[in-house]
Amino acid sequence: MISIASGKGGTGKTTVAVNLAAAVQDLGVQLLDCDVEEPNAHLFLKPVMTESVDIHAEVPEINLQRCTHCGQCQDICQFNAIAILPEAALTFPELCHSCGGCFLVCPEDAVEGKTRLLGTVEQGLRDSIRFTHGRLRVGEAMAPPLIREVRKRAEKDRITIVDAPPGTSCPVIASLRGSDFVVLVTEPTPFGLNDLELAVGAVRKLNLPMGIVINRSDMGDDRILHYAEREGLPILLQIPFDRNVAERYARGELLTEALPWWKQSMLSLFGEIKNRLEAPQLLPMR
């Protein structure tokens, strides 16, 4: 499982993920788009969707016939999702993390299960590439449970490419956990470096091997190269800015199909990753 991540948004994660998947599709590939807040990989891969499932979280509802207003459910809830008043019992389903504590603690069996829609998981096929993504419901705050549902649908014996969300907080951790290798896509600018450092910190916390792809490598300076050298992180690929590429991206094209040098770049990236996975003594850790 190879995950494509970045700290900073808009550096080219999705471009690398979909084109890497397309370049090595003959090996048996699946792409998991874990950026459930803003999933974009399908716009480039254009899979034929075969399945769509709504995903719900379990949230409590208090049965007032049974409730004795003892308040134990309110006390165990760390997320302020239950308020027990002398005459009423209120629940705030959007705050609930579905830990199950209120169900377990209620002595009267007065907590009943209700659901909150988190979003949808869709699956499909593009040629031989299996595709899965999640779409968070607009207005829903919690991405990680939906990301876990996307991850759960991975087939074991395929090369898995994960398109992760930007940032370094819980949705990123839910996406990267258990990867064999993390590719961090960045750009050679102050914002690019600052956010790369944060992403490297997150990957180190997960204790995973990683490497760097520098996108728009000629639009900036050499700060990423110096940083990578200092930290002992490999530069796997550098992609110069190309207006033709930017325009094709704008239209939603797969670059490996239109531009042979892109396919070559993606194959070489895959080779770099594979070499590192097969020669663990070379893995840059911590």
Binding site: G10, E37, L136, G139, A141, M142, A143, P166, G167
Partner: peptide, 10 residues
């Protein structure tokens, strides 16, 4: 603001 539509954006 942050990117996305999840909890920090809300």
């Amino acid at each position: 603001g942050p990117p996305g539509i999840g909890c920090p954006v809300i």
